[in-house]
């Protein structure tokens, strides 16, 4: 397939620093799918941690910078539901750039939704012989509606599952609580440390109870939190971003 539009790759700052392999997997995956992808070098943090901590007003410069960097692309794609949601819903309105900003709101996508909704991929052919548990990160889940919410009365769907479920050898695990928060929550992870840890442990226990081998998801922030708790407690569960799974599966 050849997709002739220009895609700007938006890599969340902590992914750039801590998880370059996730960014590489995202880039390679999109390239394998026939996309022209550019990573604009000048990009910085989108401002989400500040805004969620109550300092949205201090993210004007960051937001302005973000718009300038990405405004000329046809699409902006990021391996993070959380950062995409921030750009769409919580970035402060920038005077003088209203048009560019609202265009970005329409053309920015989280990786899996870009694949299912824009590239129109029904399912991916490939091989991934592992038992996989999916963590539905809340901002992607209830913010971007990447899958049906357990609270709502709606027809079930799950964009990540759609992409993974037909991989040869992959065992998709159904969890006891399929969309419960892991307790990361940005600032929450440190300001409500005790709760954050307990929530993370509870999430891990659900995956463990279903004998999950690899825990995956669309947001490395949640995975970083869960992985941090797992490692501290000697829990052998493995962690991968969904981009890594898909990229490995089709290579």
């Amino acid at each position: 397939m050849n997709f002739t539009k220009n895609i700007g790759l938006f890599i969340p700052c902590y992914v750039d620093q801590f998880y370059p392999k996730v960014a590489i997997a995202t880039l390679e995956l999109l390239e394998k799918l026939g996309c022209q992808v550019t990573y604009p070098m000048g990009q910085t943090c989108c401002g989400q941690p500040m805004a969620n901590a109550g300092y949205e007003r201090d993210t004007v410069a960051t937001t302005k910078h973000f718009i300038r960097i990405f405004k000329d692309f046809d699409y902006v794609v990021a391996p993070s539901g959380s950062c995409v949601l921030h750009v769409k819903e919580h970035a402060p309105v920038i005077e003088g750039l209203e048009k560019e900003q609202s265009e970005i709101h329409d053309k920015i996508f989280e990786l899996t939704e870009f694949m299912t909704d824009i590239l129109k991929i029904e399912n991916i052919k490939g091989n991934f012989p592992h038992r996989v548990g999916y963590h539905a990160s809340c901002h992607g889940q209830r913010g971007l509606r990447l899958s049906a919410s357990s609270e709502l009365h709606q027809t079930p769907f799950n964009k990540a599952k759609q992409l993974m479920v037909n991989l040869e050898g992959l065992e998709w695990v159904e969890l006891e609580r399929k969309d419960e928060c892991c307790g990361f929550g940005g600032t929450f992870a440190v300001s409500e440390e005790a709760l954050s840890i307990q929530m993370g442990k509870d999430r891990l226990a659900d995956h463990q109870a279903q004998n999950v081998e690899i825990l995956t998801g669309g947001d490395m922030s949640c995975i970083m939190h869960l992985q941090g708790i797992a490692k501290r407690n000697g829990n052998p569960i493995q962690f991968k971003h969904i981009a890594e799974i898909l990229n490995e599966a089709i290579s």
Partner: peptide, 25 residues
């Protein structure tokens, strides 16, 4: 460091994505 009280920090990779991209793309 409240983060690290009950959680490990991720292992630090050799280079950031930005550095990798400069070299590879």
């Amino acid at each position: 460091n409240t983060w690290g009280k009950q959680r490990d920090l991720p292992e630090l990779p050799k280079e950031s994505f930005k550095d990798w991209y400069k070299k590879n793309r």
